[in-house]
């Protein structure tokens, strides 16, 4: 059993769509979503001892937001070291989950047909996806009809999870977000022996 601890409902919806595409069977993983990063981090001491007893692997996925990526990771590591009795990984979306969407303009276009992927792909701003400060706001700006069609972020996450590229080799087709690639690598690595 692999337990995913994620910071919010959007990430949950995204994982629910992506994991089966990577060959994870439903009974082999469990996702626990929280009410934000603080809610997740502050409860680690309470929940990890129990969860790590029955999990083979715990994967924590959170947004970097405006924090220092390494400091954030070390903070969680320090907590986990004290209470976790199984293997664990920490994956951070830089700066937010929505960066992983912006990293794949083609997938956005599949959700929103009026969206012109090529127009944005060429722009300098979108070369280094993981350095866009507020990807969630950018997404709202550039997706046409966002307000009409996506009253909530989880709805978009759920939809794009079906289309987002899981390509690793071909740079042309791969997601441009580096943090997404690291996340994907993690899933594939132990996917090989457990799937």
């Amino acid at each position: 059993m692999i337990v995913f601890l994620v910071e919010d409902y959007s990430m949950r919806k995204f994982l629910e769509g992506v994991l089966p595409r990577l060959g994870f069977e439903e009974h082999l993983f469990e996702i626990k979503h929280h009410r934000g990063k603080e809610d997740l981090i502050s409860h680690l001491n309470n929940i990890i001892p129990t969860l790590s007893k029955r999990a083979q692997q715990i994967i924590i996925i959170i947004d970097q937001d405006r924090q220092d990526c390494l400091a954030l990771k070390n903070k969680i590591k320090a907590k986990m070291a004290r209470c976790c009795s199984c293997e664990y990984q920490i994956r951070i979306a830089c700066y937010e989950l929505e960066a992983w969407f912006l990293g794949d303009m083609e997938a956005i276009a599949k959700c929103s047909p009026r969206f012109k992927a090529s127009f944005f792909q060429g722009k300098k701003k979108y070369r280094d996806i993981d350095n866009i400060p507020k990807p969630s706001s950018v997404l709202e700006e550039i997706v046409p009809d966002w307000k009409k069609r996506y009253a909530s972020k989880p709805k978009f996450a759920e939809e794009i999870a079906h289309f987002v590229s899981l390509e690793k080799q071909n740079v042309e087709k791969a997601n441009r977000s580096h943090s997404f690639q690291v996340f994907l690598e993690t899933l594939c690595s132990f996917g090989n022996d457990k799937k």
Partner: peptide
């Protein structure tokens, strides 16, 4: 068992309920 253990570890019951 799991709820009891988590509760004894300091989780509040409403929180556990909301977190499924």
């Amino acid at each position: 068992e799991q709820i009891t253990e988590l509760y004894e570890n300091g989780c509040e019951l409403g929180w556990l309920w909301q977190h499924e």
